[in-house]
């Protein structure tokens, strides 16, 4: 164990090529997935705060429930869609990074919708009469509260990114953990651990934890600066 730890630190310090490649792929996949999820989830969350329509509460309950989607189940569903016999099989996406991006985007979108809804709901409560008085229509209000809540919304996106990078089940199923193609940090950890190669697994684990800490530190400092500047 102690020996593995030393080896792990050596791998990180030496900037091992295989290690770097896996980290880079992890980030590329998760960033793309979060970008897609944010592009869908932020407007959807704010729209849930502004628009009143029948079934709105049911949608909110559903979105909150989907936050806890089991990754392996999402992976399985997407696998079925993308497999050769599936409806999207002709795209040939199974076992590609694109498939992994889709899987993570599906997992992360409900998280961003739900957090964005909670954050913008209170802001809209405060703004509603004033926006109404200005003559803002609902779609104007959605844009306004997204912009005015932008700093706290960073936390929603960060939470999504955390979930995406930490998730293993979905990307393992749809990506296949192919070395040099679809192998990411979490799938490598799972594989190397089962092979008994604890050093690489531990090194990647440390980097995952550091990433989580770094992402949260950035989010907090952004929030702090803005709290000072925006009052």
């Amino acid at each position: 164990m102690g020996q593995a730890f030393v080896l792990a630190l050596q791998l990180i310090a030496a900037l091992d090529a295989e290690l770097l490649e896996i980290i880079a792929r992890s980030f590329a996949v998760s960033l793309a997935a979060v970008a897609i999820a944010a592009a869908i989830g932020l407007p959807a969350g704010a729209a849930l705060a502004v628009y009143r329509f029948p079934g709105r509460r049911a949608v909110i309950v559903l979105v909150n429930a989907l936050m806890g989607l089991p990754p392996v189940f999402v992976g399985l569903l997407i696998y079925l869609f993308l497999s050769r016999a599936g409806p999207l099989g002709f795209l040939g996406l199974l076992f590609t990074p694109t498939a992994m991006i889709i899987a993570q985007a599906v997992l992360v979108t409900p998280i961003i919708v739900a957090i964005c809804h909670r954050l913008t709901r209170d802001l809209y409560e405060e703004y509603r009469d004033q926006l109404c008085s200005f003559g803002a229509r609902p779609h104007d209000a959605v844009r306004t509260i997204l912009w005015d809540a932008r700093v706290s919304l960073v936390t929603a996106v960060m939470a999504g990114f955390g979930r995406a990078t930490a998730e293993v089940g979905a990307v393992l199923i749809v990506g296949g953990n192919i070395a040099g193609l679809t192998r990411v940090m979490t799938t490598t950890i799972a594989l190397e651990t089962s092979k008994g190669n604890l050093a690489l697994a531990l090194a990647l684990g440390l980097i995952l934890v550091l990433t989580a800490i770094g992402v949260n530190a950035v989010a907090m400092s952004l929030g702090g600066v803005s709290a000072y500047r925006r009052g």
Partner: peptide, 9 residues
């Protein structure tokens, strides 16, 4: 309004 709502801008 009695209590003005300031946009965060």
């Amino acid at each position: 309004f009695q209590k003005p709502v300031m946009l965060r801008r």
